[in-house]
Write a protein that binds this DNA or RNA. Sequence first.
RNA 1: GGAGCUGUGGUGUAGCGGUUAACAUGCCGGCCUGUCACGCCGGAGAUCGCGGGUUCAAUUCCCGUCAGCUCCGCCA
Length: 620
Amino acid sequence: MPRAGLAERLQREGLLPRRQEATAGGTAEGAEPPGCGELRAGDAGKELALRGWVQRRRDHGGLLFVDLRDRTGLVQLVFNSEGDRELFALAESLRSEYVIAVRGKVLRRDPDQRNPALKTGEIEIQVAHLEILNRSKTPPFYIEDGLHVDENLRLRYRYLDLRRPENYRRLALRHRAVKLIRDYLDGCGFLEIETPALTRSTPEGARDYLVPSRSSPGSFYALPQSPQLFKQLLMVGGVERYFQIARCFRDEDLRADRQPEFTQIDIEASFMERERLFAIMEGMMALLYSGLLGYELPRPFLRLTYREAMERYGTDKPDLRFGMELIDCSEPARESEFKVFRSALEAGGAVKALRAPGKGGYSRRELDELVALAVGWGAGGLAWLIREEQGWRSPIAKFFSPALLEKIGELAGAVPGDLLLFAAGDRSLCNEVLGRMRLHLAPESLPAEPHFLWVVDFPLFEYDPLEKRLTPAHHPFTAPREEDLPLLESEPLAVRSQAYDLVLNGVELGSGSNRIHRREIQWRIFRELGISEDEAMEKFSFLLEALEYGAPPHGGIALGLDRLVALFTGDESIRQVIAFPKTAAGSCLLTGAPAEVAPQQLQELGLSIKSALKDGGPDR
RNA sequence: GGAGCUGUGGUGUAGCGGUUAACAUGCCGGCCUGUCACGCCGGAGAUCGCGGGUUCAAUUCCCGUCAGCUCCGCCA
């Protein structure tokens, strides 16, 4: 996917048709007249009516031009003082963003008056009638593309921001993506089904947004972090193939790619092999790429096990647009005199290396910065070797025989000018640190083609050192791999799950798994997670019970729609592709949410606010 | 919870321990019949985010705070 400008990619004719033929069951409204931006030389001579906003006014005294904008683009209106005096006077009163309706004639412009920068530049509208539908205050920023304005201001006046053509295109592209997805999944036999937004809070996972109940004072609904349990219940309900463009809510700290509410393409299927689901998802991505960008996506996608991904890239979402794979140097390191390496190996750890091509010219200071970075990421240190035309430059070279250095250099594929970085110690820590370093030292320019892959065989559990207990790596309803079941109680951290992630260019687009469909297994998992029988019954009895009534084998996936759309538009932040996004602090600058509520409302809910909370102090 | 960056007319920026706080654009008024980021002339518009401190003097230095952004933790 070329990461060219949004405008360049979206302005291609036909990508975002304004009018679709009404689909079956819809109402065909007949041919709508063209919008401002759709008029062409072929329309010359037509009398027509247009409505829109005043983009800009150019007043030449006796001659006045107005650029009229609607969602289709711009067209130039002309008013001449030699015509209707009243009309001209009204036109003189126009200002930016006034909403107007005009009637007039499409005139072909003289050749020397054409504007090739404008799609409608060969024509203009000789206005015969003008009506001001609404006046406008001067907007706080320009309504035009390529704006460089404080995001604060744009969010506060989001409705003005949305008037900018590039934002209309973003919304339109999102719409097109969702429509393609709906039609595709429909064609695959999936049913779109809504699930509750008011549900119950469950342990594990992200912090819930809570909604107090009026009829049960002291009780709360939770907004769903995902429709996970409901979609499983739909499988028990015999739906077999479900999907939903589902809003999800998580009360966690935000990032450029995380909003408190976001949208998932949520999918679940019964009796479906993992490979079949992968193929369906790959088909869906291919359709999006061809439908939105005209790019034919190579399939099938690459697969890597979690273990491979960690060993080779130091992350569970590797960016495969460049190489720089991690190299296991434990064997040659064993023969060195370097104490750090030897003791790491003796303690059962590893020595791993990262080759940074052409970075051998780094100064001592730059190298020190890399070491500091690694230490900040938890490494004990970071050793480096620089391959030179003749031999090696390194503070640790003296601990290695020349033959050993050659061996390492060969293993790493080092050529003169390369920098080799080494981490020693706990194997997974080495992988993680070098994985981060790999991204830090990634090439500036990366190939434009999308690099998809499936990461499979995630571990079932992770160990939380703070709480000293197991947590689900995916979620507690993920099925373990059958062959690893015997290890569940004896060696839980070695148990692999049937969970997987879809990764694109280093971004996790979605994750899924086959679910537990037998009650007995679900019990064992809860027990391993430290969820007591009582708690499991209290919080999940409905699920456990459902599993007892012939729950079919099932599994599914959820893809982040916002991230997906942002990839297609080339935006760094998902805020760009959400109509009304929130700030990093979770507030909506447009509406002022969240806001205090009236005492009456609190009373009805049986709530009282500890006022000291607002001052940051304890309640007294 | 932690770290970093940003905050100056409507907007985007410049600036500096003492300025009449500069520039562009927008806005208002005037002139202008072929512009399209129209042009020309004139004008209005800023308690320099907020609070405190240092100083003879703070928009400038220091501390705090608020808001926005980015990252770490967090996000089954």
